[in-house]
Amino acid sequence: MELKQHSHNRGIVTRYSQTVGHTPLLQLPVPHHKATLLLKLEQFNPMGNMKFRMALNMINAAEASGQLKPGGRIVESTSGNTGLGLAAIAAERGYRFTAIVDSHAAKDKLRAMRALGADIVFVDENSSDGELSTALRDETAARIAAEDPGSFWTEQHNNPANPDGYTSLAEELLEILGPEIEALVGAAGTGGSLCGTAKALRKTIPELYSLGVEPEGSIIFGGAGGTYYQSGTGTPPGAEIGVCVDYDQISLGVKVDDIAAFNTARYIARRFGLLIGGSAGGALYAAIRAIREGFLTGTVVVIIPDAGDKYLDSYYDDDWMAERKLLSTELPAELELFFGTRND
């Protein structure tokens, strides 16, 4: 498949937030299957992740509605990427920002938020490694916002400005690919990116197939809940599934365990020189599995939410992986068969 070259030139901007969007598509080889596999590399957004799109849209909507006033305070429960976007926008526009986090957040994301002037509130500094505290984070965010009349809780899981923030992503895909997109694959966390993009695409491509991917242990698509290490995706047991998970926009929901997600990310780094996040590894593995089984054909777009540079001390680290028994020798061989040798 030959892609149209994207000629957009933004030139000089006056705000960092104006650099959002227009991220590239990377085509990976699929030599033995009837599919075109494209990765939408959202790490080229400000703060290195796709959630800047929805963070910006949530703040714009809150300003327009009067819920957020000059000099006010933004509050959000976050595992990192949304917080990075909100922190940057708060600094740009003169707001205070309080991020409610747990021990699951990547250390580099916390450092970056602090560098941008954010206040960090931990809810579980003494918890065991890897456990999520999403429900407690949300409760804390609601309480802090209620105690401060000048604050606004963005509440990303239930804020309609979240999925609406990905209309631009759909527009970019249509600009480059036209209506020739058969399937969209993405991780399901708040649900905003996958459902918002799918909804916008379906205005032009009503028959679009959307594949939602969550970690084993997440409860969005049912099944027993449990612990998982994939950050910024899924809904752990005990946490509320927000309204931004629009099941009408998800054709099928599947689960990918940490072993498959992380070893896929590690393989992509060593084969293609591209560092991707753990949830991206899960989404990509689900797409590969579906293409290999003949379930998905044609043009398949996988949303890659962020890069892997913030996870170098976790799943890109051999010792970290070995300690958790997550290393796999079989999966890289499986992926090598799928992508073929470099001479294929």
Rank of each mutant, 00 (worst) to 15 (best):
G234C: 14
D309P: 03
S231I: 15
K255A: 11
A307S: 15
I219T: 15
A307V: 04
I219H: 10
D257T: 02
Q230L: 15
Y267M: 12
Q230W: 05
L312F: 07
A287W: 00
T233S: 08
I250S: 02
G282D: 04
L194H: 07
S218P: 08
A269Y: 07
D257W: 02
G308S: 07
C244S: 14
V301P: 01
I288N: 04
F295H: 13
T190K: 01
I291E: 02
Y316V: 12
T299S: 10
T204W: 02
A261R: 02
I304C: 08
G273R: 04
A224L: 10
R270I: 08
W320P: 07
D306E: 12
E216T: 06
R266V: 15
Q230E: 13
A187N: 07
V254K: 09
A224Q: 12
R202C: 11
T264D: 05
G196Y: 14
S218L: 06
Y209W: 06
G234M: 08
G192V: 05
G238I: 13
G253T: 03
I205E: 01
G277R: 00
D306N: 06
A224D: 13
D248E: 14
A290K: 00
P236N: 14
D317C: 06
D248I: 09
L201K: 02
Y316S: 05
S251R: 02
R202P: 12
L284M: 05
